[in-house]
Design a protein around this nucleic acid. Structure first.
Lengths: 359, 359
DNA sequence: CTGAAAGCGCTTACAG
DNA sequence: CTGAAAGCGCTTACAG
């Protein structure tokens, strides 16, 4: 923008072996440290000439302020927010993280991410490390079964937001899906389309999400007078290959299901993969959206992980700005959406287009 | 593990309004700060009785050491590594980040992530912030067109690793795909299957990756004596909907392509979506793997972003341990893989199974 | 085995 | 408009 575009690389000033400090700049500019701080931080009460001299000295030394030092002085809190998730391989979590990151940009806060791999021990370890780093706020998709270990932190005022699943034994902010409504709509649609033998596949049942969605399914099924065949309820299915294998097994058994309900995106993708392979004409409904849902005509409960992350991030920022208050529970919509061109009947009933074609 | 499992929540000790410091612990334990540090950090030369007294005092005060202070004293560098990527919504980047995170665990380093949205200005801004935070090492998927702004940092010894694309105007470590081999294999397979009218869709052409892959395609096409129809080479296609729209447009034109080559995962998914919608029988080959590639029988150049992230992370750790050396260029394999059951002929030639069925 | 003093690189709270 | 002193919460480098 300013200055001529450099032709051949200008002879770079001899790089200091070690980073220059504000004191170095002060010495070179012939002023005090305080004046350097004023000049560089855009504070008032600096003569233009002084300001310029400082700027030149800083540039010559390639001065880069040390945020650790600044933040230590300003209250021993870092300018980063911590996010603890299951793992970035799962698009649910990565989209969630993307939403959080975007929310933090508004306040120029950084994002520290750690994965738990759904291991409660790791959750405690990474949370501990983040708290030692004094993150400004902490967002957690919890896996531990007891969060009383965070009570001290909560009462100390660190904004603590739980995401996707509530904490146990701790009153804190939490952002959740309206799982019950999503599940009920899915079951309603399947039943309306005539399905009675619905296979339900869930993730690790130790987690709140799987339990709540499964409970909601049981309730909805009961309401519709469906018998619950235990063999059609499979839990602890955590990744795409496992879900695919589960679906294949169910399809190969006598009296296979006429429909599948995948309780998260990894599971639904696995089920779809199985149906594409076998050419089965079973209906599929999935919780969470996924890449090819629309093209494959798969009906999904279309929650939006990025929106959830954004909501959680903004909640943390609000706490930061306004101080703690009564813990809040935010319920985000998760409603059934028919993906695809819509030229066919009720999605839940219609076999996915590709699967039908393959039959 | 130790102590009885708590029944009703034990009366929690009155939480301190503000975090306890090491000095507070020292006062309560009746020892000096140095002794507290020794006891809590597991250093030798502390009597067992003292160690225990300190531990009790720390527990009573819920003492949590402040890493900012520790790290400031220990050289003003944080225990985190910075990762700058395009955006977490893209599975390529999120898998890359997952690989980096896993590599860092070995050294108990944390991970700070920032997205550029492929904006050079943002790259500079987030890199600047990370350097001010004094990250131990910096991993960057670059978008800027000039990286001389990092020369000072490089010569100061901060491990700097570029990922997926090389830096410009700066000698630094870089981890890349063997794009040429991957592209050549893809074109070879398509030509061997009889394709002459191959549509190629690329991401933002300002980026190295798109340029290199497109150049490799041109070269391979020339080697096979294929004419290059400009209308079949589409660039600056950045997301799934755009890729889908592009494919639909090409299919609707006179003399549509008989095959598509998607130069990254977002594009390939969009092309597959288009073919699933239209029922087209065109062949598809994609750069980068994607979720349903196997089930859909799509042939892909199967690179592994998590492996790339892991390699880049380990390279940074090695620099950290051994100090700088000559910049290294790591070329990771990216080779054609036939996804799917393999019961059909050369993948590249065969229309994807679902697409065929839909025809 | 233990402690007093100094310092990491900034900002705060004053004083002029 | 400018600066000297103290301090954030730890660890380093000594001394005993």
């Amino acid at each position: 923008m300013e200055g001529p575009h450099p032709g051949p690389a200008p002879p770079s000033p001899p790089a200091p072996a070690v980073a220059a400090t504000l004191q170095d700049v002060a010495r070179l500019a012939g002023v005090s440290a305080k004046t350097v701080a004023r000049a560089l931080n855009g504070e008032p009460n600096v003569r233009d000439a002084t300001r310029e001299r400082v700027a030149r000295a800083a540039a010559a030394l390639r001065f880069r302020p040390n945020r650790l030092a600044r933040e230590l002085r300003q209250g021993a809190r870092t300018g980063a927010v911590g996010l603890v998730i299951g793992g970035l391989e799962n698009p649910f979590y990565s989209h969630l993280a993307a939403g959080v990151e975007r929310a933090l940009r508004a306040e120029d806060l950084e994002l520290v991410i750690a994965s738990t791999d759904d291991d409660p021990e790791r959750e405690r370890a990474v949370v501990q490390t983040m708290l030692e780093r004094r993150v400004r706020a902490l967002l957690v998709v919890p896996v531990a079964e007891d969060h009383r270990y965070l009570e001290g932190e909560r009462s100390a005022g660190t904004p603590l937001v739980f995401v996707d699943r509530p904490p146990t034994g701790l009153a804190a902010d939490v952002v959740l899906w309206d799982n019950r409504t999503g599940v009920r709509q899915a079951v309603d649609a399947l039943v309306a389309a005539g399905h009675r033998r619905i296979a339900v596949i869930a993730d690790r049942i130790a987690n709140f999400t799987a339990r709540e969605r499964l409970a909601a399914f049981r309730e909805a099924a009961r309401a519709h007078g469906l018998g619950l065949e235990p063999r059609l309820l499979v839990v602890d299915v955590h990744d795409v290959p496992a879900a695919r294998a589960t679906a294949l097994r169910l399809l190969a058994a006598p009296e296979p299901p006429t429909a599948f309900f995948g309780l998260n995106n990894r599971i639904t993708v696995g089920v779809v993969a199985a149906l594409l392979t076998t050419g089965g004409a079973q209906a599929v409904v999935g919780f969470d959206d996924f890449d090819l849902a629309e093209a494959l005509g798969t009906t999904v409960v279309a929650n939006d992980p990025a929106a959830m992350g954004g909501r959680a991030g903004r909640l943390a920022l609000a706490r930061l700005a306004a101080g703690p208050g009564l813990p809040e529970q935010v319920l985000l919509p998760a409603t059934l959406v028919r993906r695809g061109s819509g030229e066919r009947g009720p999605a839940a009933a219609a076999p996915s287009r590709a699967a039908a074609a393959l039959a």
